[in-house]
Nucleic acid binder design. Structure first.
Lengths: 348, 348
DNA sequence: TGTTAGCACTCATCTATGAGGAGTGCCAAG
DNA sequence: CTTGGCACTCCTCATAGATGAGTGCTAACA
């Protein structure tokens, strides 16, 4: 496979840039006139034909200009694009939007996704931290009715998880309180990812084996932690912003997209994928996601942290044709702001 | 104002029925041919002209048939329509859909709204019970960091409410535990709607006035109950079903609708209105809601109960032109099924 | 007086047609 | 290798006419 020459890249870059701005196929004339490339349109045409042959561009029909293929777009994103720095005014506005907020974690994440959608004029998305990424703070068992107990789990970061347990036999609130007390002491500050192991270890201890109370408490807690500490939910906000994009002016397409977003589990999967190798802002084109329903969309995402702990991912969902050079810095900045907000020595 | 004659009503009924089925303006010929009214189309035309003058029908343009106005639709719903009974097969399917469910209340409500959307092929909506409609079961204060406490409130029905409190001075977990203990005893089983009053009463008691612990506990609890026990959230599911309706095939309109649904507070307001006079299935046309953004939609709603206690509202949101005679029984049946599920002597 | 057939008229929708224009590919000359 | 020129393609848009559903009105009829 041939390398792209400097000029090839310039032309490809110009096509993508123009296409992102206008959404229309780009002609050779436009390129030679508007993008300081000092050759004639005929030359550009030759270059474009080459780029098409290599799979970077395509023509919707014979007498139209070129639009980038996914491959072309990917090359642009990886090698050609340079994102503008975010203007101070804009930074200030985003910072402002975070002001005056409840400290509640979920509320914060919800607001973050609204902020993303608003400043990028696309759909904003925030993946919750997994419970496993935070530390144990408190567990409580509350008897709602005979043989039915609600377990409430609170993490140090203020994440709440509840869980309805059906019991084989009834247990009184007094005894449940003892369970809580014991477990709270035992698990205080343990990372929730390790809790299961800790419980298993504890169950082997002699004092536990011979003490009904302890062993029943541990058994019960197992049922709570058995649950999906790995699973998580997301906030998606500003879906209707997607109507702004002319490429979604086709009803069928818009419907497909919204249906895909309605089933949040798919989006969770998509975001989870990017969690595996958390490296700054990343762009996932729909075609790279192996999810058929998401072919036509693009995700700009960034992980967010508390100190060194990776908590989750946030980002923006929009069409393939997006103003990446603007949105990338916004996502980056928002992620860093959120991370900063969550940073706090006392929590984790 | 003149009364409508029997025939007028028949014609109006036929127009609405046909319009609901086809979505197209209905002509005089269609009526005289298809709806066992034994007069000629010319006569029908006269009747229709009268109905138009009275504001029950309107013509999109001179050479088109008639479609019902809101007023016409309202008359049809109130006086003419008779909803079919739900087929046994369908009842069974809905019942089936509720099978094998976690007992968790929120989960149940969420599922309910999915069921509504699925069986009616429109958007399903379920308003959460207000906290004030249930009874106190448990309160817990957990210290997350210095001067920051998470308060968790659990109702007997298994509703969870949490609340982050910022304190002026730090309070240790030990003391917080005493607060919880005291409050749990004091408020056990008190309807949450009455809790505030109870607390105020308690604060006046001598033993409380002179005991720091008691009074601080009550103060703290006030901050929890001060919050909006009246507010509630909703589940809206199956929004994309709205794409099925040809009247929403206009992008602009669809966008307006989805934007209206995205801001859930409006829909909450709409549902809240119907809560005030809870009487079986009720239909609210957008134009009757005083909310500009909802002009083009219609809500079929029914309250759901636990025993005698009104918990919330569920329903279906769709276009004005809906198959009411089918959806009404579905909503009615679903509401009664849900009420039945929630019915349980031990809870409230 | 109410009902009906008939007829002229309106107007949205559909189809065909053609002009206009953006953009291409290719060729021959520089 | 680059460029100007030219024929060609094909999308888009506007126009015009045909079609047909449906109406309002009138005159005749029971």
């Amino acid at each position: 496979m041939t390398e792209l020459t400097k000029r090839d890249q310039e032309v490809l870059g110009a096509v993508v840039t123009d296409y992102i701005q206008t959404g229309e196929p780009v002609g050779s004339r436009t390129i030679s006139k508007r993008y300081g490339i000092r050759v004639s349109s005929a030359t550009i045409r030759n270059v474009m034909a080459d780029l098409e042959e290599l799979g970077f561009l395509l023509q919707p029909h014979t007498s139209a200009g070129r639009i980038p293929t996914d491959k072309g777009l990917r090359f642009y994103l990886d090698s050609l694009m340079q994102s503008k720095a975010l203007e101070d005014a804009e930074r200030a506005m985003i910072r402002q939007a975070f002001q005056g907020m409840q400290k509640d974690l979920k509320e914060t994440l919800h607001r973050t996704s609204r902020i993303l959608s608003k400043f990028c004029r696309q759909a904003g998305v925030v993946l919750w931290p997994k419970l496993s990424s935070t530390r144990f703070r408190h567990i409580e068992f509350v008897r709602l009715r005979p043989q039915q107990v609600m377990a409430v789990l609170i993490s140090k970061s203020g994440l709440l998880h509840h869980n309805l347990l059906e019991l084989k036999e009834d247990i009184g609130q007094d005894e449940l309180d003892k369970y809580s007390q014991y477990l709270n002491e035992l698990l205080q500050n343990v990372p929730l990812g390790e809790v299961k192991r800790r419980i298993l270890a504890e169950m082997k201890k002699e004092k536990v084996i011979f003490d009904q109370l302890y062993s029943r408490a541990l058994e019960m807690s197992q049922r709570v932690f058995h649950e999906n500490l790995e699973s998580s939910d997301i906030y998606i906000e500003g879906q209707t912003n997607l109507f702004n994009n002319p490429e979604f002016s086709d009803m069928q397409r818009m419907r497909r997209i919204l249906e895909a977003l309605e089933d949040k589990s798919r989006i969770v999967k998509l975001l989870d994928m990017t969690l595996k190798t958390p490296t700054g802002v990343r762009i996932t084109l729909g075609s790279e996601s192996e999810l058929d329903e998401l072919q036509e969309i693009s995700l700009i995402s960034s992980p967010y942290w508390r100190g060194d702990t990776l908590l989750g991912v946030l980002g923006v969902i929009g069409p393939l044709r997006m103003d990446y050079s603007r949105i990338i810095p916004v996502v980056e900045f928002t992620a860093s702001l959120l991370s900063q907000l969550l940073e706090d020595p006392e929590t984790c």
